[in-house]
Amino acid sequence: MRRKLYAIAGWTLLYGCAAVTACLLLFLIGYILLRGTGGISWRFLSTAESVIHGTVGILPAIKNTLFVIIVSLTAALPLGVGAAIYLTEYARNKRFVTAIEFASETLAGIPSIIYALVGVIVFCTALKLQKTLLAGSLTLAVMILPTIMRSTQESLKTVPMSYREGALGLGSGKWHMIRTVVLPSSIDGIVTGCILAAGRVTGESAVLMYTAGMSMAMQSFSPDRLAKASGATLTVALYHYAKENADFSTAFSIASILLILTVAVNFSAGFLGKKLGRS
């Protein structure tokens, strides 16, 4: 009898909790899309907010988000891949490896509000970048470094030793071997890392709110104004509309876009990882 009760309670808990998790996600997706998709139109995506016409548009936020993704990846990619190459191909000193891996784990565990503080102290104030998209992007580059490092390192580890031995045996130098044999066979991990990092940048809000500004106006990205551009990305725009304007329909429209982007990031990271891993 006790055993039977145990079984009933146990199975109920297992299925119940799994159902709760699934329903949570279904509810979130359903609710966000239901309230958000109605407000998405071509004008919403392709114009800036206009007080005169009373229309809302998020083109500046989209452009700012793209800018932040590109700059932070450009800064973090060489560093991350370089660090991963050092760890898997060159490192002999065990202490160095432990220190670097510990540092990377620490960076991954630091919450974004701390990055925001450091961004304000270091990039905005000490380096005199002010509150600009550039300062925000550089702060985020530090934040996504571990993501790129880890994913590159994982895929460098899967390159068979025999590839390296073959290349070296044929008389190739170490760097030549890495450039022509090791890196091309681990491109999947690097690409996956970039996609995950881009996803993280897109979803980040705390850092950008305090280092990159909250303006919803169109920014100029011409070369001479590049370092001065300052404004809100999609997530910061969402916060701005929800909390400061109480304009929830716009906020939910942005949330729908972010949700779709999240699905795209998850799907393409999984898909690319599988496809490139096979070929």
């Binding site: 979803g203 980040e204 705390a206 949700l259 999240t262």
Partner: peptide
Amino acid sequence: LLAGIPSVVYGLV
């Protein structure tokens, strides 16, 4: 997917 949803979206809901 739950892990990837931005925190402002959780806040909004």
